[in-house]
Design a protein around this nucleic acid. Structure first.
Lengths: 198, 198
DNA sequence: GCGATCATGTAACATGTTACATGATTGA
DNA sequence: TCAATCATGTAACATGTTACATGATCGC
């Protein structure tokens, strides 16, 4: 459902399934991902529903491309979706669940190294997002006020990604400190005294 | 896959499918949700695999309960999962996608009210989490150091939820200010001058 | 020639939701 | 008596992933 609308949104300019996959990977991967094997059938569905039209085009290399573009009905469907209530799906974070049950291991050094791994990942992700922000929204000399309407909206969402990950990163530091504290406070507790790991 | 392990984790004390659903709703809903229709078949699978055992028990009211408890193999599977690498699944946020494409409406008042709706929802959620924190981790006089190992781990995850939502809430305020700014800067732009909404 | 990239798709599987089916007990 | 809660499940559908299938062209 959401994927359909997102494809419509990405089809502001005509694009093939392959192009759309690249748009996902390059521009919106911080809040949505999709595989080609999901994109192709979804495009067929949109076509059947009259929300996109399709034409063949020769490719510079490789087989013929099938280029999709938005119809009036498609744009209408997109507008209704963005104009509707915010769609909340519930979030599922396996790594949070792992941490939640990690007391089972009875080894705070494990929890510590888990937190450090998380920290590295979040730091990497934050770096990527900063890079996107720099290249897309700060290359032009002007500040936020100079952005076009679409750039402005895209900037808002990017900033959400940035702030969310920054918060998680800070949380990692807080967790690491809290665990080190706890280890220092009672170092030789439960049956895991032998396992020292950085 | 994750749901299986989470059920094992929740089965520290014997519980029925119905009980587990309540545990989801009451204790870990801020990072994972599950429906009864998914819990029951998953428990059957765990049973077949020898990770849980099952016994019948009379119910105070309603039909007989089927109470599941962890086997040694089940505990082992749980341990392997928590000891493994952090599992990242990619996050999908439909409301972020809606915002991303909202320039299509060409009406900043719509974007503004969308942001305000988000703000309300996040504020509600933050309140719920604060309530959980207060009731579960601050009722005892002691501070973080006094928590048992399992409570400590649970506290870490709750704090992640809290900080993530707090960051989103701050982002909402920033967005609202940014849009109001933009509206003030160029109030009568694109074809939407007639639509004034609070 | 070989691997990367271009390009489109199908099939099998995994995961999760909504709706349906059944029936007991308790309190307003 | 009627709604809520207790209690277990199935079926149909929606969504998403991984693996497989096919084949061209470009640069090394």
């Amino acid at each position: 459902m959401s994927l359909e609308r997102i494809l419509l949104g990405l089809l502001r300019e005509p694009a093939s399934g392959y192009d759309l996959k690249n748009l996902f990977d390059r521009s919106i991967r911080y809040f949505w991902a999709a595989e080609l094997s999901q994109i192709y059938p979804t495009l067929h569905r949109l076509l059947k529903r009259g929300w996109v039209r399709r034409r063949r085009a020769a490719s510079a290399r490789g087989p013929d491309r099938k280029v999709y573009s938005l119809t009036g009905a498609g744009r209408q469907a997109l507008r209704e979706w963005v104009a509707g209530e915010p769609k909340f799906g519930d979030e599922r974070f396996a790594y949070v669940a792992q941490l939640f049950f990690m007391w089972e291991l009875g080894d705070f050094y494990r929890t510590l190294s888990f937190a450090k791994t998380l920290r590295t990942r979040f730091a990497d992700r934050l770096g990527e997002l900063h890079e996107i922000k720099r290249s897309r929204f700060e290359s032009e000399a002007g500040s936020v006020e100079q952005l076009s309407d679409d750039e402005f909206h895209q900037y808002l969402t990017l900033e959400l990604g940035l702030r969310t990950i920054a918060a998680r990163l800070e949380w990692c530091d807080w967790v690491i400190a809290a665990i080190e504290n706890r280890i220092a406070a009672k170092p030789h507790t439960d049956g895991a005294t032998k396992r020292r790991r950085k």
